[in-house]
Design a protein around this nucleic acid. Structure first.
Lengths: 350, 350
DNA sequence: GAAGTTTACACAATGGTTTGTGGAGATTGG
DNA sequence: CCAATCTCCACAAACCATTGTGTAAACTTC
């Protein structure tokens, strides 16, 4: 009665049955070249001994681990969790395990995680870049090894990069057209880090939309946020309120700062929607809970995660030089009370 | 100029340098029994050839994968993402990769994920049970294999189960005492599934607190939620409003239903806080964004994740029969406007 | 009934690393 | 100068499953 903690291996089954390892393996897997009788024997014993195949050994031999690596900047807010949700859903269905890492917006940790995932022989890596990533050498390494690499949401400006993003430019442009349609003319912008394609595109759309509608671009109406927190939005709003002339709308690159601005405006007795329109970006759950409900842009996080995995699966099939594919999802402008300029937003009747 | 896509292995280094595999291995690892000169040689060549150790092979040989499996019911809301955040943080720091799975509240998927993780030779499993889990055979299997098993938040009623939970009973009891202190006497409860220790404890505390303060328990004031959504809370509130006598407080086992109730009450012109106190549970981000701000209970999700990993690391060290340890975190009642019964909650000045 | 095909399995190599053992050469001590 | 000790490294087994090849026996076919 020793420890006997050792898991039963395929070889144990073989020895017990007087078969060769290969026969047992074939009996358990593709199962050609082995009689139904022995198949039954093998399966019965496997069941009885609680045999569990060792994925590591199989992966080592087959050169395929069925593990998918994922690197996200963080797991805060609603967006990235939604993406992870979608990723896990589809990956799991396709027989893949998901290894998750967060870079915490730190390129060094991002690099380390890439290394660790490659060492773990993952079959592919899904990554949304940190906002401190400047060079892409660590990503090049992945591709040069032949490991499928799929970006999502935040992707580098490389011509041959695969990924799935949402059309931030379009989403932001729609926001702007909506605001202009509402009669807003002094539209302010809370900008995110310009190094990221996402927030950069939102800013670009802000500028282009102004231009297209003959509205002059005023630098003083753009506040670069230090983060995406509520308080960041409050101080940004405070800054705007100190201008000689108040903006009549604010388009924030994130939802939480918009929420902060909303709170601050309330404290100042300035009525959101009636006096100043407010729009966020991301469609966080709280946007439907607050008063007035916040107009925002949905990024389809779950769909993005699902699509990213499907793209990965495609890359995995073809051993070809990984044709660069970029899938662009359409964002959805969700108009709610906060952007209906000039109209009383509170107590709108059902 | 063939494909040459093959990654360079330890054996390649050995051959190139005319050394034995063992020497190269020792040079790269603990590095005793090998001269500094050859160590340098090995490292130099490893660098030059971009050698990346194959974790799978190492894990297979060492019987240790440095992978931690995590099973969560889902990745929605703020709580579970926070836990995952904490888990990844500490696990990563300890040199572990994290494999994440969601059961989607489906015990069958939970079982499959347990199987998959064991096959993947994970060094331990962290799990928060699905609400459809009735028997714990699949968990017993894990422990019988000697794989450390740590529950978090939702754990089974087994005497020898390890895990980290928050004291839901205490949190809920504090909610009740707070409400009673505010003068509430007809306190309603939105109850979660009674199969889960968490929501069961919240309900139990609700009952006990009433009893302790000589307030009769009224069955009609308890609504069992079909889910934890906003709409679930709205219909539950609607149901309560049809009672001959209105409750003067609602303690919801989740935040979102409380938010839904708040919206419904507003539609009916019933003032939250003034006319009816409202308390949720989980301290979702939206609780601070809405008006009135929602009183809630913080579950310290991130801390829970961190603690769970630390508990796992302890279990991993000792090969002993895994002493059952249950770590209980203190929840934090966060009193905000919505529960200040009788007081006007809106426009409270700063 | 001989030649050719199929069936069902065994043998052995393979994947990449770790680790116990052993041994040649260099060093030290008496 | 010989024995004892150390250094530094090689050899080979082990981890566990997969897979190409080889080979008996059973079967088909004319």
């Amino acid at each position: 009665m020793a420890k006997a903690n050792k898991r039963t291996s395929l070889a144990d089954l073989a020895k017990e049955l007087g078969l060769a390892n290969s026969t047992v393996s074939r009996a358990l897997n593709h199962a050609s070249d082995v009689s139904d009788a022995t198949k039954a024997q093998v399966w019965a014993l496997a069941e009885k001994l609680h045999y569990q195949p060792n994925s590591l050994a199989a992966a080592l031999r087959k050169g395929r681990s069925n593990v998918l690596g994922v690197i996200v900047p963080h797991i805060n807010g609603a967006f990235f969790p939604a993406v992870v949700h979608g990723i896990e859903e589809v990956a799991s269905k396709a027989g893949f395990n998901v290894m998750i890492c967060q870079s915490t917006e730190d390129v060094d940790r991002e690099k380390k995680h890439v290394e660790a995932l490659l060492k773990a022989q993952v079959d592919g890596i899904l990554v949304s870049m940190s906002n401190t990533t400047r060079d892409y050498a660590h990503f090049e390494r992945v591709r040069s090894q032949g490991t499928p690499l799929v970006f999502f949401d935040r992707m580098p400006a490389l011509p041959d990069a695969c990924g799935v993003v949402v059309d931030d430019y379009l989403g932001a442009y729609q926001v702007m057209e909506h605001l202009i349609e509402q009669g807003c003319r002094r539209i302010a912008h809370f900008a995110g880090p310009q190094i990221l394609n996402t927030t950069y595109d939102r800013f670009r759309a802000y500028q282009d939309a102004l231009k297209a509608h003959g509205i002059p671009y005023r630098e003083e109406l753009v506040v670069h946020l230090p983060g995406s927190s509520t308080t960041a939005g409050m101080t940004a709003m405070q800054q705007l309120l100190q201008l000689p002339e108040r903006p009549d709308a604010v388009f924030s690159a994130y939802d939480f700062p918009a929420g902060g601005a909303l709170q601050l405006l309330e404290d100042y007795g300035i009525r959101v929607a009636e006096d100043i329109a407010l729009v966020g970006f991301s469609n966080e759950p709280f946007t439907t809970m607050i008063k007035p409900r916040l107009t925002s842009v949905d990024q389809h996080g779950t769909l993005m995660g699902e699509t990213a995995v499907e793209l990965f699966l495609q890359l995995l099939k073809r051993a070809e030089p990984l044709s660069s594919r970029r899938i662009v999802l359409k964002p959805q402008l969700v108009v709610r009370d906060s952007s209906l300029y000039g109209q009383p937003a509170f107590h709108k009747q059902a």
